[in-house]
Nucleic acid binder design. Structure first.
Lengths: 256, 256
DNA sequence: CGCCTTCTTGAGGGTTCTCAAAGTGGGTGG
DNA sequence: CCACCCACTTTGAGAACCCTCAAGAAGGCG
């Protein structure tokens, strides 16, 4: 599964197995009911796939784009840039996520979309997405619903940043990404690996890199996580959830 | 204007002056092109209007709603509630905002919608909004675009909370609300009044009420704002914008 | 091998929190 | 009309959390 996920759709011209968008369609279907016809219409899209190295900007701030970035493999972040060059990552995307579905209704990017690890990206033209959303109202509704799910995550992170200290923030991030990776079919929520540098995590959590390290050490000493170079492994998810006061409802990983 | 705004549509049965939704339609039109027919279809809605006192929960967390709350007068907040009862306000809405357009695709509320001041609210049935979004794709696109604008504000606030201290957060909030009030036709960005308690501000800014006071004092001593009981007035908007590193692009108050 | 990124460690200082208490004004009921 | 209550604002002292600055160690990559 892991190896396959890293090379999806690559030169598989067979139209009966449209692997490119499969993960995205599954994600949409998790939240919104889609008929076979609607799924087929989405699967018929055949956008270009490209590989990007870590640190590559898929979209630069201020740029005007006419495609949306679908993450096929790897981790991608959305970041706001400050005058002094520092960045704040406001969203993290895992495989199956359309990293900037937002850009369909608003093509002028106010943020950067950056590859946090080496990754495989699919650039889906806005025109095709808009056309599908208009022709199939259920697809339009599914896109809208996914945008709301994204907003729900933002809203949660506003609470997390306001109310939790670095330890709680880190715990919350790990709980969230665990569930999202599991939903993406990449491991289990209570046993997954996250390959981000402490620098990247500091831009997500809103603390300094030095303090990310100290937070790691505290959680490591408590036996809750294990770290090894740029890889984090969750050991005690229940403890982590308690620290984070984690409630997964906001992820809208269901149809209720 | 002020007095009129507090009694919109009340027993004005004249169908040629559909005051209820006028501000909302103008807001949508600010961001998305809408034809006369589409505007008329929106204006034809005639949902019930009600007055609510400050502190009233328009929507309680976990509740399932079948209408969206349009703010006609007053200020409304979206808040997440914690186990210990504390709240974090993640969005502030001014007149003309549909406070929870999010609830149309996701009817189960993960948050509370609370009246921060006495206010006038219009409860627009989801069914009617969905119907319009399906029948008129441009209206659907406008709703989607407004949802993205909301998400853009969330994203900005994640940066603000991560990178700015209490003074910068306060400055940013005042800069943003100034522009939004102006866009809503309620004063000028560089001379407006905000009637919120320090307690409410603390829930927005993610600091303690005590520290809101100290932040006020610092800005007051610097001659940037004036405070009088629960009313704040901006005196030096340019200084405020410098403190906040404010760039209004994220509000999407235009069609680019 | 050397460079570069990333991780680790320490000391001191600043912002914000917690806890505590007094002052102020508006609203309510007697 | 007054007394009271309640919500809100103001003030202070000490502690916690996180930052800044600085520098050394450890692992990849050409």
């Amino acid at each position: 599964m892991g190896r396959k996920a890293h090379q999806p759709g690559r030169s598989r011209v067979c139209p009966h197995v449209p692997a490119k968008l499969a993960a995205f369609i599954d994600r949409l279907g998790l939240r919104s009911p889609l008929s076979q016809e609607e799924r087929a219409a989405l699967a018929a899209l055949d956008p270009p796939v490209s590989e990007r190295r870590a640190r590559w900007d898929l979209v630069r701030p201020g740029e005007r784009v006419d495609y949306a970035c679908l993450v096929i493999a790897g981790i991608v972040g959305r970041a706001e840039q400050f005058a002094d060059g520092r960045r704040q990552t406001t969203a993290v995307h895992v495989p199956g996520d359309m990293a900037d579905l937002h850009s369909v209704p608003v093509p002028r990017a106010a943020w950067a979309i950056t590859a946090l690890t080496d990754c495989t990206i699919c650039e889906v033209p806005h025109g095709q997405l808009r056309e599908l959303a208009t022709r199939y109202p259920a697809i339009g509704a599914a896109f809208w619903r996914d945008t709301v799910a994204d907003a729900s995550v933002y809203s949660k992170w506003i609470s997390v940043l306001s109310r939790h200290d670095a330890r709680g923030r880190m715990a919350h991030l790990l709980c969230e990404l665990g569930l999202r990776m599991e939903a993406a079919g990449l491991g289990r929520a209570d046993d997954f690996e996250l390959r981000l540098t402490q620098d990247q995590l500091s831009e997500v959590l809103g603390v300094t890199p030095v303090h990310v390290y100290r937070t790691f050490r505290a959680l490591r000493d408590a036996g809750v996580i294990a770290t090894e170079r740029r890889s984090i492994r969750v050991l005690e998810r229940p403890a982590l959830e308690r620290i984070a006061e984690f409630d997964p409802a906001y992820l809208l990983l269901g149809r209720d």
